[in-house]
Amino acid sequence: MSAVTAAAAPATKLFDLAHDGVRELNRFLHQDAHVLRGLQVVVRNPDGAHNLAVGVNAPVTVEIDGHAGYYCGGMNQHATVVVNGNAGPGVAEGMTSGRVHVHGFASVSAGAAAHGGLLVIDGDASLRCGISMKGIDIVVGGSVGDFAAFMAQAGRLVVCGDAGDGLGDSIYEAVIYVRGRIASFGADAHEEPMTEADYAAVKSLLDASGFDHDPRTFRRVASKRELYHWNADATQEY
């Protein structure tokens, strides 16, 4: 009986950062994908350390049992990184695939410049969430601070709470869905009608993130595309 249970559970590797180094952890996580595939890596006592599980390129699960510092899960490919706490600046920055899930709040620049994958933040995200995002999906259970999705090029940002000032400033082809209040739009961002495709997109992102809000309570924010072409008559009044 116990042998069957052991075979069914994923193999686990434990790092305790009270005595193990971050470099040791990341070296382990930079092994070839076939070595790491299906492995569960648990990180104890992260205590706000920087660069946890950065640059992983394997279908491995990393569970961080506490608060992470700067750039946690940055440049992630294929891995699932779970933070059982808060994340510092630049969580999942530059991610291309995989999933990063922060159960607490996230500091500034969450998901910055990321090309793909899913970033879920159960709490609030601070300023510049999704800045220059290039294809990532970000779902924030709480509210986002000012300048969310600044210069966002592709991907989707779902905000279950409120959005701060300058939402979607200079946005390109990314799309933002907001359930709560929007303090103000940034240059070239505006609200557009929701289509059935939008409702379906919101539903699928909420389902993937573990939120059960009604997609019909969300609004769509996207680019007016007025900044796409130089307008000499605008006299810099955007």
């Binding site: 205590d47 706000g48 350390a49 608060h67 510092g69 700067y70 808060n86 510092g88």
Partner: peptide, 8 residues
Amino acid sequence: SEFRSLAK
């Protein structure tokens, strides 16, 4: 500035 200074 950062949580790592509060951890102890």
